[in-house]
Design a protein around this nucleic acid. Structure first.
Lengths: 126, 126, 126, 126
DNA sequence: GTGGTCTAGACCACT
DNA sequence: GTGGTCTAGACCACA
């Protein structure tokens, strides 16, 4: 929310975000192996070091672990950790920022609320 | 590698945002002069080139104008222009992003809505 | 003590160690600037990325800070932090390991103690 | 980038160390057979090649020998050889390193000496 | 001037 | 096969 200038983000950072989402989406379930550095670098046509940098960031966040000679694996508990962290951040930062901006711009609250209601009900399958 | 893409906007960008808010808040009413580059750079202990860069960005956005020998002034209509632009951006980007994130994290919609209701009613001047 | 195989350490890691010592030695007093990435890479004839990696590790440890456009600076309190951390590690890991090894190898305790006494008194200027 | 150069010795190296200690401890007396590669790899859930690598390192050090069709055996004299080698290394490397670090961190020598005295006397069998 | 990112290609250690 | 490190050289954003 705060700064969604996703475009100018360095490639490795975009990768980090994509993988984080993959963990949340069960695309990479806990215990599963991430695609190898080489595989990703080949698939996306980017340097392997760039991929490695992304994986290291996830390593530092404690979301994945290295098994030597085998590759990178999603840690057990990673999804929960992530969900928790992002939820906290959302409630502590994004929500207040959002509301503050809404007020500053004198956006009609009813318009916002109805949009939220509407979009939520559309995806009732959640 | 775990680094700052949080509040680490470039200084000049932070300045731009602060001044934009100043225009919205009437801190810098239309027609008024902005503090000189020298003054700002001294007060914030930053390079004058950084300040200059911020002012140029505002110039390019058409929010302020240079009066030779006198300095930078807020253009008439600046506030309206700004309000319009930011509102559009809010509705087209921030709101959808916000909602998407809400859903992805399965945040309870009622909690969010009630927070919005509450904070808005506190500031009855809406 | 544990594994002092300093040789096989990657260059960037050796650099990290050298700079940590520099901070302890007052070679890089708190608040002072570290030599620029380029300067170091030129002086040691190593790739600038390698230097950067070392600086990042110190950044992550909270020993140095980046001032944008200006370079890397030793944080205030860095020396104290370092000293504390290393002392703790020494007492909690190195000392016990040392003693355990001494016993396992049945090294004469008097020999060790006298060596310590001797070497310490030689450097009385501490 | 803040990573593991702590206890993250390669697995085969950890094995080598463990077996060396086993020889010193009489867990593997001279002339006795080491557990088979298969047995070790199964017990520790590691690749048999890793185990093999460890055994080869011990072979190269002359501490064990291969008896064709029977497996690996601790050589006669192995314990003595080991004790000698480790003692030399301890006195030539570990002790000086230890003392140097002690001085650099300005650790009180009396504290260290008394700890040594104490822990040694606890194990009166010295 | 500073650091940050990326590429292309090489070599190494571990399993 | 896996990841880790390094080089040489390029381009960019920030101050």
């Amino acid at each position: 929310m705060t700064h969604q200038w996703h475009e100018n983000l360095p490639i490795y950072k975009q990768l980090v975000i994509k993988i984080r989402q993959g963990i949340l989406n069960q695309l990479y379930p806990e215990g599963s192996a991430l695609p190898s550095v080489r595989a990703v670098s080949a698939e996306l046509s980017i340097n392997h070091i760039t991929v490695s940098k992304a994986y290291h960031e996830l390593l530092d966040e404690g979301l994945i672990e290295k098994r030597r000679g085998l590759g990178m694996f999603v840690k057990t508990g990673a999804k929960e950790t992530l969900l928790h962290a992002e939820k906290s951040k959302f409630l502590a930062e994004d929500l207040p920022n959002f509301i503050e901006k809404m007020q500053q711009l004198k956006i009609d609250k009813q318009e916002v609320i109805s949009q939220i209601q509407q979009l939520i009900t559309e995806n009732k399958h959640d």
